[in-house]
Design a protein around this nucleic acid. Structure first.
Lengths: 245, 245
DNA sequence: GGCGGGCATTGATCTGGATCAACGCCATCC
DNA sequence: GGATGGCGTTGATCCAGATCAATGCCCGCC
């Protein structure tokens, strides 16, 4: 539960001219609102950075000075109660944009699960950039709206679904690799631990483990290793996820 | 749980010229991004409408054709599971803006709790308006970001707080009259039923009722009538809400 | 290869909140 | 004023998932 407090490492403080042009995340990300011809402006305000597993790079309550754009790896966002109870509000992968906030402080913390590479932008500079690219502003609104819909789904899950339905929902969501993509995989890795899954679904580690075991025993899934899942009955699981049965 | 299916009543199909200028909600709402001098454009695309208690005016899954702006009354937004389990994702009051969505369909349903007055805007027309008022787009992004933060708080509540902490959080939030305002009231009405509160907090009616009774017995609150609350120990309740004790 | 530590699994027991079941309190309407 | 029906409250019991407690498994390291 406790994070290493090592600072993220800056790979390239004055990012090379084509850093953004060759970025893996660009096709998936809000950056694609900026035309190739103007990429230099984006590159100029981006700092390419990476974070080791377990590093906290956004701390709830700290002044919200930067935006982040994930180019590889997986991040967990979470909120804590004073006694250590944790709620993971989401996992962020390639192309995901972090740090939207009206308030002057971050509303959540973010930690690297595996090695994470990301671009960091100062909020002040992004604001001036936005004035010149209304299309980017539109993209951000789209992103925020999409996340709002996902958040409402998660409220339904946390407030009203059973442990079994929560796990089924989680697995089918991972199969779609996050929220972005529509194509569904039948075999995929789970970069996060059982503890992370538990804190995301509002359950305990033990309940997550037992429910996985049960779903396997019933033939819905396979668990080749603790961090890998095969979906055997996608339709049944999708039904389970949406509360049928 | 079931809603009346009466349609909302259109009060003024071609809204009077100064409808927006004299609107009670304008100071609290996204509309204030449009200068007084240009209000006619806003008025021209607004339809002033009201809905009787229990009326469903947004239906999850229906084509998302309109935006809504509440000018008085209280609305519940919710999602249902096929067997009728319900999660209320939020209550919307004066100035609240509904209907943000990337998708072509609404992601949630919305019902009037009491008599609700609102403005309705066609999405297509709002889109063209937005092109002329980038400031309005910025306001929408602010609104979406604020709601996202509120949604994350609600996830923490639903995933990790006890019944007692949930009720304390709910009461302190109502005392701040929704999310917008900062000034905290010590006595206020609860327009929603115990069932609504339960479905908002991921509890049952019985647990809500019992917990209210207990908080009163312990001297934290008073319940002059079922739909009215007095906060007696705001500091203690705030602590309880954030998970201390 | 054996040791240590961090996950994950599995079993036994407990409990907060759900469920089931009355009952009370108003309003509204004959 | 008495019947009706929709909340809300209260009590008794139950159970899904939490908690407590081993045990297993894997991987890195000496």
């Amino acid at each position: 539960m406790l994070a290493l407090s090592t600072r993220p490492v800056v790979l390239d403080p004055h990012a090379t001219v084509n850093a953004c042009a060759s970025c893996d995340a660009r096709p998936h990300s809000v950056c694609n609102a900026i035309p190739d011809s103007d990429l230099a402006r984006l590159t100029a305000i981006a700092t390419v950075t990476h974070a080791q597993p377990g590093t906290t790079f956004i701390q709830e309550g700290d002044p919200a000075t930067h935006f982040f754009n994930i180019s590889s790896g997986t991040v967990r966002m979470y909120k804590l109660l004073p006694d250590g109870r944790r709620q993971i509000t989401g996992f962020a992968g390639v192309g995901h944009f972090l740090g939207l906030a009206v308030s002057e402080t971050y509303a959540f913390s973010a930690e690297a699960i595996d090695t994470v590479r990301f671009c960091r932008f100062s909020r002040a500079r992004v604001r001036t950039l936005l004035d010149d690219y209304p299309k980017m502003e539109k993209r951000l609104l789209e992103v925020a709206s999409t996340e709002l819909v996902a958040a409402q789904d998660q409220m339904l899950l946390l407030g009203r679904k059973t442990a079994r339905e929560r796990l089924a929902s989680f697995l089918m969501m991972q199969a779609r690799q996050g929220v972005m993509c529509q194509t569904s995989r039948t075999r995929f890795p789970l970069p996060m631990s059982r503890g992370d899954i538990a804190d995301y679904l509002g359950l305990t580690i033990e309940t997550v483990s037992r429910t996985f075991t049960k779903l396997r025993a019933e033939g819905f899934i396979d668990i080749p290793s603790a961090s890998e899942i095969t979906i055997r009955a996608p339709v049944a699981l999708e039904g389970m996820a949406s509360g049928l049965s």
